[in-house]
Design a protein around this nucleic acid. Structure first.
Lengths: 326, 326
DNA sequence: AAAGTGCAAGAAATCGATTTCGTCAAGCAC
DNA sequence: GTGCTTGACGAAATCGATTTCTTGCACTTT
């Protein structure tokens, strides 16, 4: 790897001039040409590390998600990466597994690596953004919000919950249960409130036990669905507040020999490649990729020095019925 | 962010001593304590960028995959990340979209960012590893191999093709077609050879048109399946050489009103969360996560200075029937 | 006691860019 | 012609760690 000094020597100018050529400062036509020729000849690429040390910032953004194996976050990551790429930024991807300790570790790495900014889907309300914040690096919360004063992009979860539940009511179901995520997580809370709003307003039947809390994974959804089916007076439809739990719920229905065509299922999120699509499954499509793209745009604006007041962008989910499987 | 100089000043020692404390060199008990106390007090974290500039290498590995939205690569990425994490490395994830230009751009970034090494699933045979190689950074090819002399981890694709096809023969199918990936890609070539070997040896019926080439995506699989169904004497079963094409094939079957229970389908790869599982679908599980983990291990060994001869690790796929959906 | 050995630890060089500062010359006004 | 501004550009400082050199002291060895 050629350095700026070698280029300078070959071009017969000072290193400072070489730097100026590549950073758009005032250099005469003449020397510009000399420098560019020399650089070309040596295959010179500026050493990013040296630049970073001097400039105290890099072109890397850090993306922290709970689990990249969840298709929702995969799509989100893809959106972030696409947008970052357009501006010449790279993305470091980290899985927190919803573990605050892992999250903290990664945030410290982000700080000590001089990463330009962080996009994160916080594992808990107690995220410690201290290290990042003290460096003045921008942070954008995505999908979930935090108590810290940072920009955020989220989905209108309540509206999504309302849409999903309404679709089931409109389809004629009257005993609609809800499988929500872990209690206390804002995201889930809002979605379940959407359900509650509709079942209350539309005067459907709601029994004790119609609200189930589960972890966000397939096994959680399955267990919750089994619990619902064991009720003395089980529901005839269910709203699940994320994609993986829906898979679990459908599995449970299948295992219990219940025809999904007669049992209403509404999902907040998309079922990946489901086929053949059970017609009674309502999917509310969460714009994950768009979420990522928007978050990246906001972060890049801040990195660029934008100082406008904090923003929270809320994206609306759209309903898709019957589900599209590409 | 406190620097090594501030720590040194507070502890009353030289910066060199502070560095030695954190790099395991000979420092007296006494000063060790002083330094650690001072570091603690100031919340000192070594600046990775400065270290990297000096040491000419970082603790970041670069992972290049065609498309992170393909669950196979997601699982692979997860494997890489988990292993990297254990050794304190971070992973930068890049999507090449099978575009050699994008791939090259990322490889150059990896070089100029002093990344410790690269794991890649090459977009084509013409990968240009020049920049990386000249820096002496290790590279591990994953899933596909390259003409360059680098370590590789791959799947025994031919054996996987054999296993899938054999399963169909054993299930009684006699007119088995194959939907392979784009011609000329090693990975696909081997899988299709597995199919060919079995259909030849087991004397099943093979017609012109039973071998279809398609892109690796859902639409490719669907188109290929439709073409197969339009044959004068269509097959009664099909082997698809990746997961996405299988989805497309199943969709085509569904659209044509063909009961997948009576039509044999074997997939090289896993169908994500498929439910209810069509019983006649044979899945050969490709150990994607393990692939990633192994690649990361090999890369880390090389980064650690291992100079043993080049290795190619071949992982055996295992058959799963009926498919497990978690 | 003189010379040799070992080791802790400070001083200073180093990695490769960016950026401040200063110099010099050209251009312009009066 | 003198004084002032302006722009190109080189010299040198800087970012924050690591590492090589060097020094000085304690401890052997003969």
């Amino acid at each position: 790897m050629a350095t700026i000094y070698e280029v300078a020597a070959l071009a017969g100018v000072s290193p400072a001039t070489v730097s100026r050529v590549f950073n758009g400062n005032t250099v005469s036509e003449e020397k510009q040409r000399l420098v560019r020729d020399a650089a070309q000849q040596l295959g010179f690429t500026p050493n990013k590390t040296a630049r970073r040390l001097r400039k105290q910032s890099s072109e890397i953004i850090c993306l922290l998600v709970p689990d990249i194996e969840n298709p929702f976050f995969t799509a989100l990551a893809r959106g972030v990466e696409d947008r970052a790429q357009e501006s010449g930024f790279s993305v470091v991807l980290c899985n927190t597994d919803d573990d605050p300790a892992k999250e903290l570790r990664y945030l410290q790495i982000a700080a000590s690596e001089q990463m330009a900014g962080v996009i994160l889907s916080p594992a808990s309300d107690e995220v410690d953004l201290g290290a990042i914040a003290s460096l003045g690096r921008p942070v954008v919360a995505v999908d979930r919000t935090t108590p810290y004063p940072v920009d955020a992009v989220k989905i209108d979860n309540r509206a999504a919950g309302v849409a999903a539940t309404t679709a089931l009511v409109d389809a004629g179901f009257r005993r609609i249960a809800c499988i929500a995520g872990p209690a206390g997580i804002e995201e889930t809370e809002d979605r379940y409130l959407g359900w509650k709003q509709v079942v209350t307003a539309r005067k459907t039947v709601v029994r004790d036990g119609f609200l189930q809390h589960a972890n966000f994974r397939v096994d959680g959804g399955r267990a919750a669905m089994n619990a619902l089916l064991k009720l003395a007076q089980p529901p005839d439809a269910v709203v699940t507040t994320n994609n993986l739990m829906a898979i679990g719920a459908l599995q449970a229905l299948h295992e219990n020999g219940i025809d999904p065509e007669g049992f209403g299922v509404a999902v907040l999120g998309e079922l990946p490649y489901l086929l053949p699509p059970p017609v009674s499954v309502v999917q509310v499509r969460l714009p994950a990729r768009h979420l990522g793209r928007t978050a990246a745009s906001m972060l890049l604006e801040r990195i660029g020095g934008d100082t406008q007041p904090l923003r929270t962008v809320v994206l609306r989910a759209e309903i898709a019925r019957p589900p599209l499987s590409l």
